[in-house]
Write a protein that binds this DNA or RNA. Structure first.
Length: 284
DNA sequence: CCGGTCACCTGAGTGC
DNA sequence: TGCACTCAGGTGACCG
């Protein structure tokens, strides 16, 4: 579900609420949502102080200072993961449907002192690390640079080094970390580049244009708290950037630029939306 | 190396 | 109303 702007919004909301608070209790109702041993997960988190919450790529990192060495909790929301505040789930029967983990925080009013992880499709994962394991795990992810921070020369170099279709390469988190299906389609449209283009053939002018448009769109979306198309929301509500989508989920509608019908095709298993007239490139 | 397909899950929407 | 089918913002495994 969430891409860079949505994860950024969620991480910022979380940071405001949990920074400086201590996790007094932790509980898991669906063990598979936790990577590794669930009892260990709860033990490591109990009594841990939250130093802050940050985004990296599409991951969320809770920076922790735990009594038994916990240094961080990493969360990947995948398609439908979300956080909300609510009452602490008492006992086995106290859980609301789709809520899988809960963290009770110090200093919040009763009834909304539990940070709850909800995930309808159960694809997301939560995992706690000590200092050494964290470094090792993050290195193994091999994430590329953040699209908001990467320099244009590096972006050009990384893109043109890859084979395959431009869209697939942009979705590869080891090339650049944070773009997903919505923002790749929107960025390619804004930069007038075909999702089917060969990255190796792109000129520096084209990759610069793509990066500039991607940054502009990502920043505008963050300012709008992201795109809510089904069930994404931050702690303080959803976003409104979906109103600004030009091509995503608009197959058959007229291109806002030239009026031709927006096309939809499946590329690398992902629905892909673009204007074949404004984004000319290789045929299927 | 590369692309395609499926698996992981559940619910919403659509068409008959 | 109900059923069958498709689709969904992500990633990782597997196969040819």
């Amino acid at each position: 579900m969430p891409e860079l702007p949505e994860v950024q919004t969620i991480a910022s909301d979380l940071d405001e609420v949990v920074r400086g608070r201590t996790i007094t209790q932790a509980a898991v109702s669906f063990p598979k949502i936790v990577a590794g041993d669930e009892v260990m997960f709860v033990d490591l988190l109990t009594g841990a102080k939250t130093l802050g919450v940050e985004r990296f790529g599409k991951w969320i990192r809770f920076n922790l200072d735990g009594p038994t060495g916990a240094a961080a909790m990493l969360v990947h929301l995948k398609m439908t993961g979300q956080f909300h505040l609510g009452p602490w789930p008492e006992g086995k029967d106290g859980w609301v449907k789709h809520d899988h983990a809960a963290f009770r925080l110090s200093g919040l009013p009763a009834g909304e002192d539990a940070l709850i992880y909800r995930d309808m499709r159960k694809f997301g994962r939560l995992r706690v690390f000590d200092r050494n394991d964290l470094t090792e795990f993050v290195a193994e992810l091999g994430l590329g640079p953040d699209p908001l921070l990467v320099k244009s020369a590096e972006f050009h170099q990384r893109l043109t080094a890859r084979k395959g279709k431009l869209k697939s390469v942009l979705l590869d988190q080891t090339v650049v970390a944070g773009l997903g299906n919505i923002y790749v389609d929107e960025s390619l449209f804004a930069a007038r580049l075909s999702p089917l283009a060969s990255p190796a053939a792109l000129t520096r002018e084209e990759t610069d244009r793509l990066l500039k448009e991607a940054k502009r769109i990502l920043k505008a979306s963050i300012a709008a708290r992201g795109s809510t198309t089904s069930n994404y929301q931050g702690l303080k509500g959803g976003g409104s950037f979906q109103k600004t989508h030009n091509v995503y989920h608009r197959a058959g509608e007229p291109c806002p630029s030239c009026g031709a019908a927006i096309e939809r095709l499946v590329l690398g298993g992902r629905a892909t939306h673009y204007c074949a007239r404004c984004q000319p490139g290789e045929k299927k």
